[in-house]
């Protein structure tokens, strides 16, 4: 306990004495962890978005204006036969489509009224089973529907979601790679900063060794100094990231209703944030440890 108190006192005193260099180490750790966790925040938010879109994944089957009664029934039967993929289907007539448009976009309602004829096609709105949202069954169904007579278009947003999902993966990968490189750089910086503190006190260390001080008293303060730098750096990174999230949240660029709601941008999960702090302290600890053992 006394040894720990000693290490804490010495480490904080040393941090303060070398505050310029310490700040440098803290900043490099902060930058490394900011980049790493920044990419994680972006990718996790993308994933959340993708998950929401996935849940809402729908297949829209647009019908020709001149579709016959039989053709419409056969389209309906195709959907009925595929009930392994289709959770629910709803027929939307041209009039229903216009009404829905007016409801969703009240500003444009008068414009729509001014049109000579109803431009909206009738459609089947198909809700897919969640279990199938990831495989290619919906895509096959869409292809089949496109071949069916009376169908003018099938809209299925899978590809888009998949592309976004690979962007999220890339984002995470970049975070790991860039973050990894920067973390390595941070370890090097902490090592040299702590080593600097160590050289500044080599007479002291020599005397400690000669009077038979325990290793913990000799190396402990330096390891702790690195650990403190790491913890402070991680705290700084999280604070910066938190402000960045707040800035994004306050922005007014809400793209179409419910599509991407920036005000709901999520921060790191608490466990992940704790991991970042622990990681930062570990980075500093490793740097301090390397510095404390090399010059002997």
């Amino acid at each position: 306990m006394r040894a720990f108190r000693y290490c804490v006192d010495e480490a904080t005193a040393s941090l303060w004495r070398g505050r310029g260099a310490s700040l440098l180490a803290i900043l490099t750790i902060a930058i490394a962890l900011f980049v790493l966790s920044g990419f994680l925040v972006v990718s996790s938010n993308l994933e959340r978005l993708i998950a929401r879109w996935n849940d809402a994944a729908e297949l829209s089957v647009y019908l020709a204006d001149d579709i016959s009664q039989e053709q419409r029934i056969s389209v309906d039967q195709v959907l009925a036969r595929n009930d392994a993929v289709v959770a629910a289907r709803e027929y939307l007539s041209k009039a229903d489509a216009l009404r829905r448009f007016k409801r969703d976009f009240p500003d444009l309602a008068t414009t729509a009224d001014g049109l000579a004829s109803n431009p909206f096609p009738a459609s089947f709105e198909v809700r897919l089973r969640a279990a199938h949202s990831a495989d290619d069954a919906p895509a096959k169904l869409a292809a089949q529907l496109r071949q069916t007579a009376g169908v003018v278009d099938v809209r299925y947003d899978r590809q888009w979601i998949e592309r976004l999902s690979s962007v999220a993966d890339l984002c995470r990968l970049m975070g790991y790679v860039l973050g990894g490189i920067l973390v390595a750089a941070a370890v090097v910086t902490v090592t040299s900063v702590v080593r600097l503190a160590l050289y500044g006190r080599k007479d002291e260390i020599k005397i400690m060794e000669l009077v038979g001080a325990p290793i913990g008293y000799i190396r402990g303060p330096f390891v702790l100094e690195g650990t403190l730098q790491g913890g402070l750096g991680a705290g700084l990174a999280l604070a910066a990231l938190w402000s960045a999230v707040l800035v994004v949240r306050s922005r007014e660029y809400q793209v179409v209703d419910g599509l991407a709601d920036f005000s709901a941008t999520a921060f790191l999960a608490p466990s992940l944030a704790a991991l970042v702090v622990t990681g930062g302290m570990l980075v500093g600890c490793v740097g301090g440890f390397i510095a404390a053992r090399t010059p002997r």
């Binding site: 040894a3 000693y6 002291e204 005397i207 400690m208 009077v211 001080a213 008293y217």
Partner: peptide
């Protein structure tokens, strides 16, 4: 001797680092 420590601190340094 350690220049940044006073005479007293220089001497007390030894028992301090020995716990």
């Amino acid at each position: 001797l350690i220049p940044r420590m006073t005479v007293l601190e220089n001497i007390a340094f030894v028992p301090k680092v020995l716990g």
